[in-house]
Design a protein around this nucleic acid. Structure first.
Lengths: 159, 159
DNA sequence: CGAAATCAGGACCGTTGCGGTCCCCTTATC
DNA sequence: GATAAGGGGACCGCAACGGTCCTGATTTCG
């Protein structure tokens, strides 16, 4: 399905959350605010920190903060940080050894596709994804919306 | 990784092969010509036939043939046929039930990303991937950029 | 100076989905 | 009727991912 990992989804949630409220936030705090399990939030933040997308501060009163504002972070960066470099197939970039090296008719043929996809992903920033009015429903509001309502009649689908 | 399945890669190889040589070809024949294992070729062709991308003819002297010429088959169709609809995350298209339904802050937020990616993939046809000489870029900007530019400064915003 | 808070970095499993193969049935040609 | 070919599954092993937890390093605060 061309699916990207769930962690990436969480990463976007976490990043957007970091873009609001306090400048420095701890992972338990973010977990509480987003509803994402705390260990997972911690894991995501570690990865994002390693990728340089967030800055960390250890010790008491530590936490994480954004390095760049949301509108300067293309979604492609998040995907690259979590899922690795954007590469649709294994045999891209000419480095890997496609077993059927000699007769593989697709050598390098996917590169333009990769570039087109990457270009599309570079053109969308986290700010674009965070924009809408509702943005965050903290657990409290969520409860207010109803426990498990939402038959989900395909709203939001801007099309 | 944003990786798409290997089967999709094979599908492209097979489709391109179908676009050359005999109009009707059998799966063993295609397997021999491409180097892809025969059972896998057969599997791919069955899927492509179910998706209407190739037409099959049973019985002796049967085989497969293209329904549309290569330049009328966007790569997006192949991906959709093999990997399912293009949907980066699970919570798209409003059908699936995100467990944290009420408080998921990302509801519908991935839609523009999906559409951008899909647009990029619709703009590339199998003919583009089959023609060795042609290094095409993404749809609209490609013409503006010139024949084979795109060392990837990467910026075509999706809107 | 000690205690608490917080991140860093792995190790560790269960599940899932995918890649790949095989089998039997139906259909069409010869 | 014999044979060639696709149709539609079932089946299994593996790798990758999601998710959790533990131990250690670092900083602040009492």
């Amino acid at each position: 399905m061309l699916r990207l990992s769930k962690l990436t989804d969480y990463a976007v949630v976490v990043m957007v959350r970091l873009g609001r409220g306090e400048a420095v936030q701890t992972s338990p705090c973010i977990a509480a605010a987003t509803g994402v399990p705390e260990p997972t939030v911690a894991k995501v933040l570690k990865i994002l920190a390693a990728a340089g997308l967030v800055a960390s501060h250890r010790g008491a009163r530590g936490g994480y903060r954004l390095v760049r504002p949301l509108d300067a972070v293309p979604i492609a960066d998040i995907i690259a940080a979590i899922d690795g470099p954007i590469a649709l197939t294994a045999c891209v970039d000419g480095g890997t050894s496609c077993e059927a090296q000699g007769l593989c008719p697709m050598r390098g043929r996917w590169d333009p596709v990769n570039r087109a996809v990457e270009a599309a992903l570079v053109g969308i920033t986290l700010a674009d994804m965070a924009d809408p009015a509702l943005t965050f429903a903290a657990p409290a509001e969520a409860a207010a919306l109803g426990p498990l309502a939402l038959p989900l009649p395909a709203l939001h689908v801007a099309e």
